[in-house]
Nucleic acid binder design. Sequence first.
DNA 1: CGGCATCCATACCGATACTG
DNA 2: CAGTATCGGTATGGATGCCG
Lengths: 126, 126
Amino acid sequence: MDAGPFPFDVYEDQCPTRMVLDRLADKWALLLMLRLADGPLRFNQLRRDVKGISQKVLSQTLKKLERDGLVTRTVYPTVPVTVEYALTPLAQTLREPVEALTRWAESHMDAVQAAQQAYDAGAAAR
Amino acid sequence: MDAGPFPFDVYEDQCPTRMVLDRLADKWALLLMLRLADGPLRFNQLRRDVKGISQKVLSQTLKKLERDGLVTRTVYPTVPVTVEYALTPLAQTLREPVEALTRWAESHMDAVQAAQQAYDAGAAAR
DNA sequence: CGGCATCCATACCGATACTG
DNA sequence: CAGTATCGGTATGGATGCCG
């Protein structure tokens, strides 16, 4: 049986790849990494830029990304304190795949929305 | 102001791209599309293949994918009924970006896990 | 076989208040 | 500025039972 093009079976539970994929399959994590791709940002700047994220979720997500080795957190002893978040080299290698995904979303969102409307129209007809 | 490399600002709330990205940022949706990339499958086959997914979530996710125009649902009037799910041409164009992401996960999961252990060790020290 | 309906636990998330 | 802590509503997901 063909287990796909991957050495590990991504469909298996407990597959390490799936755990990593799990983290990437996070709306805010993806958006934050995209935002940081252009350069380091401070906490509240990030909060303002990525609209709709709450301070709590921002904090939690950044901590996860830091734990995964995708983001560094640097504290500058100014008054008041300044904290800067930046992508690690590891995260830089992730940039292209993620941007490929957003490019797909950009160029196909109209097709998706058309499909949704057609689907909803069909559902409403019944 | 630079809104990034995209015509729409993906960081904006209500951005259509972000809505699409939202759907893609779904663990099960990604795994199901990967599984269907090799060819159409029936409901319970999909359920067995993608380990850990419950029948409820599988059903919900497939319905979302169908609504987004990414998956087709075909019913064959056999006894008992046979239902086959397949990727649409639209989803085919998504295949490469998604597989790029899984390839990244494959090749960098060890780095991620190492980062996690280092992070946890540092946290435990305090 | 391929679901849907229901119940229930818990995970999540926003709002708010407080701190170094 | 950059968080942590707590509370409460909501969404999510598993388990179970039933149906065409």
